[in-house]
Design a protein around this nucleic acid. Structure first.
Lengths: 340, 340
DNA sequence: GCGGTATGTTGAAGCGCTTCGACAACGCCT
DNA sequence: AGGCGTTGTCGAAGCGCTTCAACATACCGC
């Protein structure tokens, strides 16, 4: 392996000069810089990451903690992960992938060893066991998701309450009076992952203001469970004409079942989904949907982390970034059918 | 931050002794070991990763290179990634997540800087641009997938040729004579990601041996493209009674469309999918399928990497590990309908 | 032509760990 | 009792980089 010293010798300068050329922390005459850069290229030099981390106490790595759960919608996680990795690289950082498996201990390990300069946590629960650690270590961290108490924390998330409200408004605007919400799997609510509850509550509140009747039912993603859920919904509220689906896995089953039952979308029943645009566009009926801005969330999280690492900490204000939901009208929603 | 030296002082031993307690590379009397371990716990010591990497030229990090593509089935990738991370942790290693974005340069960077001790590459193409680098750097690497030329490389993959053959056998065994294969998106074949072609070829060969007529059609995952593909299949081969689906995204659309056309599964038409078990079990009809052992692939890849890092290199033999396919019979396949 | 400020470059001191060779202390054998 | 191999511990030399203080040089106004 080529070392900095060899580059220095080759270029006829001192090691520190090479270092300053690399980091740009000191001004260097363009002549020297050129010579050094040429030597670097010629020798195929790559700075040693360990030595760098040791000397500068900066690893240029940020840790991304992902859950292990399988009841979350995986493509969204993946999209966030990729956005995080891509954005981090654009800032000269790499991403360490941590699974939830180790739990809070992973935070301690990674922070304690100086392996990562900062962390991004996904799948945050309302009372997340990792939060105390994050607060006490004081290492830069950004959460994707919203815990119950956000004091001292920086969070990014879609504004799910507004998302729920937006869905209610859209359906109300088309004259629907009774709507059903196909929620996430029951386990998601039990675990108190905030987003599902915030969506539900935001939707309920706005629906009440608009005079809508709502019915909220959790649902596993499978075809069978969707069948059961749907039957119970129409059983309890035969007048239901609008659906909001939050569990992406339930989308295809729902559309299948509705068609099977002879209910046309959007003529008889309108459907609004909360899902990535790609999913909405590829479904059997092109779905009116509120997008989950996975990429944007990942990107923002990294930007916030970088700001902290660079010490431009926005006064510690505006700690919670809620992305405004955007509803795209496609082919699955329309005026409520004229009854009676 | 607590350092090794402080632990040593606290325990009344030398720094090297603490180091040897930690690494176990030298025998230590149980008395000393206890004292050191107690000090470590008491002081909350975590070895500094950078210093360790510098001194030992081992970072205890393995890099996982994932593609950025969106035409691959994401959940499988994710499952592999998580299995890799989990298994790596069990071996005391962490995982660095690299996206395809940087391309081959990422290999050079990560290897050159000593950031990672080894690499695992996913989404390997037949003529992958990363392979020459891998070969020349000589760093331990394992591919998930099979390139055209595997000399000097270690690979893990599902035996897709056998998978295709197995599907043909299953359908032939039930008396089907004309079968259609719904393949991956055309882009996947154009990119020459080996698995799709190997499945196709394996299936064709066995089908010919068994006297089956086959028709292979690539298919994007969307509902619309599946509709088009299906129409063309029945147009060209009205007698088709068996389907093999390789594109997971096409599964739900296919089942929907078949039902819509009044073709009952499995009475009129049998369907065999190549997909993760979970997908097969959750579909509208529980699918007879060949599982994609994502977890197993991730786990194996890490085990192989670890073997290389530990110098137990299995004589360099058995470089290619092909996992045997397993077909699970569920509710979507059965005897071919009696014609005439 | 002088003090003073920029500007460019350098030597040396670590960063916290691993690891090698040395060494003491302790049986054990003959 | 003397030499032997074993076992447990230590000191010191780095690993390759960053960064500080110091220095050399050039340039400015007066």
């Amino acid at each position: 392996m080529v070392t900095l010293a060899e580059v220095a010798r080759h270029a006829g300068v001192s090691a520190s000069t090479v270092s300053y050329v690399l980091s740009g922390k000191r001004s260097i005459s363009s002549g020297t810089r050129d010579r050094v850069e040429r030597s670097i290229k010629e020798l195929g030099y790559h700075p040693n990451a360990g030595a760098r981390a040791l000397a500068s106490s900066r690893s240029n790595i940020i840790a991304l903690m992902m859950p292990l759960r399988t009841d979350m919608y995986v493509p969204v996680m993946m999209e966030i992960a990729i956005a995080v990795a891509t954005t981090a690289r654009a800032h000269g950082h790499d991403v360490l992938l941590l699974t939830g498996e180790e739990g809070p201990a992973a935070v301690r390990r990674v922070v304690g060893s100086g392996l990562a300069d900062a962390m991004i946590l996904m799948d945050v629960e309302l009372l997340d066991a990792r939060l105390p650690l994050i607060r006490e270590t004081g290492r830069p961290a950004v959460l994707i998701g919203l815990p119950a108490d956000t004091t001292g924390l920086t969070c990014v998330d879609l504004d799910f309450a507004a998302t729920g409200a937006l869905c209610a408004e859209h359906l109300a605007g088309h004259g629907h009076r009774e709507i059903a919400v196909v929620g996430e799997a029951a386990a998601v609510y039990e675990r108190h992952t905030g987003f599902a509850e915030r969506t539900r509550d935001g939707l309920h509140r706005r629906a009440r203001e608009l005079g809508l009747r709502t019915l909220h039912r959790p649902c596993e993603g499978s075809y069978e469970s969707m069948a059961g859920t749907l039957a119970r919904i129409f059983d309890e509220r035969p007048g239901t004409t609008g659906f909001v689906v939050q569990n992406e896995a339930a989308i295809d089953p729902l559309l299948s079942l509705l068609r099977q039952q002879g209910r046309a979308v959007p003529e008889d029943v309108s459907v609004v989904a909360i899902c990535p645009d790609q999913v909405a566009a590829q479904a059997a009926v092109r779905l009116t949907s509120v997008a989950i801005p996975a990429q944007e969330m990942g990107r923002r999280a990294v930007e916030l982390v970088m700001a902290k690492l660079d010490g431009r900490d926005d006064d510690g204000t505006r700690q919670v970034t809620l992305l405004p939901p955007e509803l795209t009208v496609r082919a699955s929603s329309g005026p409520a059918p004229v009854t009676g």
